[in-house]
Amino acid sequence: MSFESDLLVWLPHLRRYARALTRDQAWADDLVQDTLERALSKWHWGRSGNLRAWLLTLLRHRFIDQLRARREIAVDDETAPWQHLPAPSNEVDGLLLRDVERALYRLPLEQREVLLLVAVEELSYQDAAKVLQVPVGTVMSRLARGRERMRALLAGPVAGDATSTRAPLKVVKHTP
């Protein structure tokens, strides 16, 4: 039984989360690689708990560190990787994916990451709280605010209106 083979199971999920967080393939690959190296070096037998949540936590820490290093990337910064995406043109349930994507990257980071963990990775609130190292109540408020914000943005007449959300990415210190 090897921890490394367990790791392989979650590799596609790590890749997906990294891509969604960064919206930059090369950055995402780096993040996943860093996470794996860290996981391989930090693992010790007898460690208990949820492997996937632990891996996502490691990945998120790398991401936050790298964001700090890149400092001051605003959500609508012209140079942010997510400003230069080939926009998907299809539609799901009456929502244009292009608009959903744009709205998602207009959310403050703390709302976006919880939305990705719950809606895309399908984590329970409790596991999302573990990954984000915040209380479950905080997960719920951020999620609710994120979804409401998405709804408002998607209902808005011009999704590209820059004046509405010029919020810089806030890097939140992890407090236990």
């Binding site: 596609p12 999920h13 299809n90 929502l95 994916l97 959903v100 895309v120």
Partner: peptide, 20 residues
């Protein structure tokens, strides 16, 4: 609306298939 958001987000971020 929340359900539709979920459906759209899952569509936006499919599980990477390389090495599947």
């Amino acid at each position: 609306h929340y359900r539709r958001q979920n459906a759209a987000l899952r569509q936006l971020f499919p599980l990477p298939s390389e090495g599947a």
